[in-house]
């Protein structure tokens, strides 16, 4: 579980406060553009120093650990493309952590992708997600990982994210995506993270997005 307690961070003219945030399955952090979502994400990863507060993973405080040593997986807002082939990327990070890369390929269905050159946006994001998972993180912080993807790629990534059983803070500005993926939703407004509400719209959002996916494929046929 990822816990953020009595936390405040200030950067780039924004201040974000979290009284208490507990992420045990998938929690969506919903907020408008410029509300400070990325500042909070970067701070939880250790890239921005908080004014006060604590970050805990499975009860252990990690507030003062450097980013490399935090057991958190992170996908930043802008898609990263490393200058190595997909398989080399996985092998490189697996070597860093003394782990095997095959399981993550199977889990995310990347067998076809790792032999490819010129990945689509969605494939690239899946590869990056697989790379992050090789670290065996105890929590994930995903900062709008689908915001720049077209619908088909968005669906690809969202479906993959649903299959992951790591506590995840999914940061988004999109209420539909938040409803599709999360068990709980918190909002960031006026610099304050709200108390969580249970996502009662999950089933509805899954239906809507799935139907939209079928409609999309239908349109593409013409």
């Amino acid at each position: 579980m990822l816990e953020v307690v009595d936390y405040a961070v200030r950067a780039y003219g924004h201040r974000v406060e979290v009284k208490e945030l507990r992420v045990s399955s998938t929690t969506a952090l919903l907020g408008r553009n410029g509300s400070g979502k990325t500042i909070l994400a970067r701070s939880l990863l250790g890239f921005l120093r908080p004014e006060r507060g604590r970050v805990l993973i499975e009860g252990e405080e990690i507030t003062n650990l450097p980013p490399e040593l935090r057991p958190i997986g992170y996908l930043p807002q802008h898609q990263v493309s490393l200058p190595i082939k997909p398989l080399s990327q996985l092998q490189y990070v697996a070597r860093l952590h003394g782990s095997d890369w095959n399981w993550v390929v199977e889990r995310l269905g990347l067998r076809r992708v790792i032999g490819k050159e010129g990945l689509s946006g969605g494939e690239r994001q899946l590869l990056n997600l697989a790379t992050v998972l090789l670290k065996r993180p105890k929590a994930l912080v995903l900062d709008e990982p689908t915001s720049h993807l077209d619908f088909a790629n968005k669906l690809l990534v969202l479906e993959a994210l649903r299959s992951i059983d790591v506590p995840t803070l999914f940061i988004t500005h999109d209420p539909l995506e938040a409803s599709f993926l999360s068990d709980e939703i918190v909002t960031l407004r006026d610099g304050k993270v709200s108390a969580p509400v249970r996502n009662s719209m999950k089933g509805w959002a899954i239906d809507v997005i799935s139907e939209a996916g079928e409609l999309y494929n239908e349109y593409l046929r013409y």
Binding site: R42, E68, P76, Q77, V80, N128
Partner: peptide, 15 residues
């Protein structure tokens, strides 16, 4: 490359 590039690398344990 953007600040996210370095943060992604550090986040996956590259130092």
């Amino acid at each position: 490359l953007g600040v996210g590039y370095v943060e992604f690398l550090r986040g996956i344990g590259v130092r």
